[in-house]
């Protein structure tokens, strides 16, 4: 199961924080910064997996943004890494060369995409075109 997804920039500022477990708000806040610090300080070019108190952190850096997935012991780390790549490709497709600012200014849309891909800690959809369908439709209606 996937426990959380963070998108943070190089300075450690959160851009998206999404949780899929029923943890209390307080304990989330405390572990958040510790996890972000741990990932950011990890040597570049090293292995993309870290352990944090029983949670496996799978992370990958794209330009200025870090994608961090917290998964439990049973999850396939390599598949999680591939899933991050998948998310980025979908963002890229929607925003056309996605950058940090796109994600900042379209918080709600990013959440819509993520909700299509990932629900209650499980991957819902692997297909890029299907995942974007609802959002594209929504944009069309709004226009």
């Amino acid at each position: 199961m996937i426990k959380f997804l963070y998108l943070v920039n190089k300075q450690g500022q959160p851009r998206i924080l999404k949780y899929f477990d029923n943890d209390s708000t307080l304990s989330r806040k405390t572990s958040e910064s510790a996890i972000i610090r741990k990932c950011l300080s990890h040597a570049e070019g090293g292995c993309s997996f870290l352990d944090y108190r029983g949670t496996k952190l799978v992370f990958r850096k794209y330009a200025t943004l870090y994608f961090i997935l917290g998964v439990d012991e049973d999850e396939n780390e390599l598949a999680a890494l591939e899933f991050i790549q998948n998310i980025v490709e979908i963002f890229d497709k929607y925003f056309d060369k996605v950058c940090e600012l796109d994600i900042m200014f379209n918080l709600d849309r990013v959440h819509v995409i993520l909700d299509e891909l990932l629900c209650n800690g499980c991957i819902v959809e692997g297909s890029k075109s299907l995942a974007l369908g609802p959002l594209l439709l929504m944009d069309k209606v709004v226009k």
């Binding site: 049973d74 396939n76 598949a79 591939e82 899933f83 790549q85 998948n86 991957i123 692997g126 297909s127 075109s129 299907l130």
Partner: peptide, 20 residues
């Protein structure tokens, strides 16, 4: 199948889940 292709493999997420 373009819909489910991820870097040349057909729906790896589903395969992994079934294997598990």
């Amino acid at each position: 199948s373009p819909e489910h292709d991820v870097s040349g493999v057909s729906d790896p997420f589903l395969q992994v889940k079934i294997l598990r």
